[in-house]
Design a binder for these strands. Structure first.
Length: 545
RNA sequence: GGCCCCGUCGUCUAGAGGCCUAGGACACGGCCCUUUCAAGGCCGCGACACGGGUUCGAAUCCCGUCGGGGUCACCA
C-alpha cells in the first residue's frame, strides 16, 4: 500500500503573495492527494536569488494556511539550501559528457536572438565546439560560465492526464538548456527534476505554461535515471478581458494611476518624498515596466495618490482575505475553474470536494475569472454559516484590516453586527456598514449629500420628522428593536407618515449616511443614550448651516 | 512567426453518437417582498465558432477555416 500511495506537491517560488492561479494549482494537487489518501508536499523554489524573499515566503505559507491547504512534510524543502546536492549531480553529468560548461554571456545570447528574429529566423542555441585550449583560456581568465545539459536529439513524448496522450515535441525541437546559472544556482528545470525524484513525487499538476518544459524534464530524468512522474497540465486562469491573470495586474493598476497623478503636473520627487521612498526608487520602477513595488511601498504610494485597496484587482489570495471572503468558498469557486464534479454539482464543502475530486473532471480549456459568481457563493455561504464559523472568519478579516474600529469589538458585538448585516456579500461590507457603531458619537461624519437629501430637502421635512420622533424615542422604556419599531410605527401612524420618511432621517442622524443595517436593530445596538445624543448632535449640525 | 494546446449561453460549466426542441450556476431583465443598502421568492432572456465530411442519426467522430491561449530566458 505505501508503495502505491500517490504523492503530489506544490512548489511555488517565493516572489510575493500567492495568487489565485497558484492557489488553484495547490488546491488541485491537495485534492488529488487527499482524495487518494496520498501525501501533499510543499517545496519552496527559491533558486532565483534576485527575486525570492523571505517575506514573500512567509506570506505564501500564511496564505496556504488561511486556505486550509495543509502540507504533509513537517520540514519544508528549500531549494536554495540544496545546492550541494544539485552540484554533485551536475558534476557527474559533466564528467559523463552529458552536460558542459558554456561561456556565452547573456548579452551575447540576446544579441544572437535579436539577429535571428530580425532576419525572421528561428533562433536555436548551437552547442559550441570549443578547443581544449580555448576552455583553459576562459577558465584562466575567470570567465563566468553556465552549465548546459546536452539534450539527446530525439523525440520527447509523454501522456498528460489532463490534455491527453502524446504531448511534447519531435526531434530537433530540443535545445541544450541551462541547468546551472553563472551564480552557481541550479535552474528551475534541474532543481525541479531532482527534488521531485528525491521527494518521491508521483503526480505533478501544474499550469499549462509548463507543458513544453516537461520535455526538458523528461530528458533530465532519463539522464539521471529517475522514474517519470505522471503529469497533468492545468488550463490557465485568465482575466475577464482575456488577458493573462498575473500578480502584476496590481502593480499595473498602480502604475497606471501614478501615471495619471503625474500627468496633473506633479513631480516624481514629491511622490517619493510623501511616500517615504528612497530617492530614485520611483524613477527606477517607472522606467522598468516589469519591475514591481513591494507591498509596503505600494501601500504608501497608493495613500499618496488616493488609491484604495478596493480599487485594486483581486488576484492575490491575500486580497480575498483582506476583503472578507471565506477561504473555503474561494476554494470552492476556484475548483470550478477548470474542474467539474459533473452534473449540476457546484456548491461543495472542502470534504465534498475531496470526496468528488477526480482528474477526469479537469477540463482542457482556459477559463476567465469572473468574481460575480464567487461573490454570490460567498453571500450564500455566509448567510448559511453558523456563528462559530463566521466569528473566527471575521476576526481573521479584521486582523488584516487594522484600521477598522470593529477591531475593538468583543465576540458578542461581532455576532450582533453579523446578524444585523445578514445578507452581506463579503465581510468588508458588514464591517464598513457598521463602523459608525463603534466610533464615538462626536466622531460620526455626516455626509453632506445625505443631510441634504434626507433632512433639508422639501423645506426641512426630514429635519422636522427627526425633531418630533426624538420625543417618541425619549419615551421608549424598554430599548429593544421590537419596542422601538412599535414606537416609531405608532408615531408614523399618528402623523400619517410613511415609515421611510421617519426611518431615513433617524438613519442619517445616527450613521451619517443613508445606508446602514436595519434601523431598529441599529438603534438597539447603539442604546438609548447614544442614539439620542447622535440625534441631538445631528440637529445641532444642521442648525449651524 | 515556428511549434504546441484549446473552442457549448455574457461568464463558469453539464454533455463521452440517439435520453438535447442542449441541463445547471452566476450575471442580466421583469414582477413580488421591503424602513436604507442588501438578502430572499417567482418568471424570463440566452450557447453547441464557421464550412465540409462520416453516419439512419453529431454539440459529441474526421478534415479545413477562423478565433483564443501557451511557449520559444542564466524566471519559475
Amino acid at each position: 500500500m505505501p508503495d502505491s500511495t500517490i504523492v503530489t506537491r506544490f512548489a511555488p517560488s517565493p516572489t510575493g503573495y500567492l495568487h489565485v492561479g497558484g492557489a488553484r494549482t495547490a488546491l488541485f494537487s491537495w485534492l488529488l492527494a487527499r482524495h487518494m489518501g496520498g501525501k501533499f508536499l510543499l517545496r519552496i523554489e527559491d533558486t532565483d536569488l534576485a527575486r525570492s524573499t523571505e517575506q514573500a515566503c512567509t506570506q505564501l505559507l500564511e496564505d496556504l494556511r488561511w486556505l486550509g491547504l495543509h502540507w504533509d512534510n513537517p520540514q519544508l524543502v528549500y531549494q536554495s539550501r540544496r545546492t550541494e546536492i544539485y552540484n554533485k549531480l551536475i558534476d557527474e553529468l559533466i564528467a559523463r559528457g552529458q552536460a558542459y560548461r558554456a561561456y556565452e554571456t547573456s548579452e551575447e545570447l540576446d544579441r544572437q536572438r535579436q539577429i535571428a528574429s530580425r532576419s525572421k529566423r528561428q533562433y536555436r542555441y548551437a552547442r559550441p565546439k570549443l578547443a581544449d585550449e580555448q576552455i583553459r583560456q576562459y577558465e584562466a581568465d575567470g570567465r563566468p560560465h553556465v552549465v548546459r545539459f546536452a539534450v539527446p536529439v530525439k523525440e520527447y513524448r509523454f501522456d498528460d492526464v489532463v490534455l491527453g496522450p502524446n504531448q511534447g515535441y519531435g526531434p530537433g525541437e530540443a535545445q541544450d538548456f541551462v541547468i546551472r546559472k553563472s551564480d552557481g544556482m541550479p535552474t528551475y528545470h534541474f532543481a525541479v527534476v531532482v527534488d521531485d525524484a528525491d521527494m518521491g513525487v508521483t503526480h505533478i499538476l501544474r499550469g499549462q505554461e509548463h507543458l513544453l518544459n516537461t520535455c526538458n524534464h523528461i530528458a533530465l530524468q532519463e539522464a539521471l535515471g529517475y522514474p517519470r512522474p505522471t503529469y497533468g497540465h492545468l488550463p490557465i486562469i485568465m482575466n475577464l478581458d482575456g488577458s493573462k491573470m498575473s500578480k502584476r495586474d496590481r502593480d499595473k493598476k498602480i502604475r497606471h494611476s501614478v501615471g495619471l497623478w503625474l500627468k496633473q503636473g506633479r513631480k516624481v520627487e514629491l511622490l517619493e518624498e510623501q511616500a517615504k521612498l528612497p530617492q530614485g526608487r520611483l524613477a527606477q520602477w517607472l522606467a522598468a515596466d516589469t519591475s514591481q513595488l513591494d507591498l509596503p511601498e505600494q501601500a504608501r504610494v497608493m495613500e499618496v495618490i488616493g488609491l484604495t485597496r478596493g480599487d485594486l484587482p483581486e488576484i492575490l489570495v491575500h486580497d480575498f482575505k483582506e476583503n472578507g471572503y471565506l477561504p473555503e468558498v474561494l476554494l470552492n469557486f476556484l475548483s470550478l475553474l477548470g474542474w467539474s464534479p459533473g452534473g449540476d454539482r457546484e456548491r461543495m464543502s472542502m470534504d465534498e470536494m475531496v470526496h468528488l475530486f477526480a482528474i477526469d473532471g479537469i477540463g482542457k480549456s482556459n477559463s476567465k475569472f469572473a468574481r460575480d459568481k464567487l461573490l454570490a457563493f460567498n453571500t450564500e455561504a455566509c448567510a448559511a454559516a453558523p456563528m462559530s464559523r463566521l466569528i473566527p472568519a471575521f476576526r481573521e478579516y479584521l486582523s488584516v484590516n487594522p484600521e477598522s474600529p470593529l477591531n475593538g469589538a468583543d465576540d458578542a458585538q461581532l455576532q450582533r453586527v453579523l446578524k444585523m448585516n445578514h445578507g452581506f456579500h463579503i465581510l468588508r461590507e458588514a464591517d464598513e456598514k457598521s463602523r459608525f457603531l463603534f466610533v464615538a458619537d462626536a466622531e460620526v461624519e455626516y455626509q453632506s449629500d445625505a443631510i441634504e437629501k434626507v433632512l433639508k430637502k422639501n423645506e426641512g421635512q426630514g429635519l422636522g420628522a427627526l425633531r418630533d420622533v426624538r420625543q417618541a424615542l425619549t419615551g421608549v422604556e424598554t430599548w429593544n428593536a421590537a419596542h422601538l419599531e412599535q414606537a416609531v410605527k405608532g408615531f408614523c401612524e399618528q402623523r400619517q407618515l410613511g415609515l421611510g420618511k421617519v426611518a431615513q432621517p433617524i438613519r442619517v442622524a445616527v450613521s451619517g449616511t443613508t445606508v446602514s443595517p436595519p434601523i431598529f436593530e441599529t438603534l438597539e445596538f447603539l442604546g438609548k443614550t447614544r442614539t439620542l445624543a447622535r440625534i441631538e448632535r445631528c440637529l445641532e449640525e444642521c442648525a449651524k448651516g
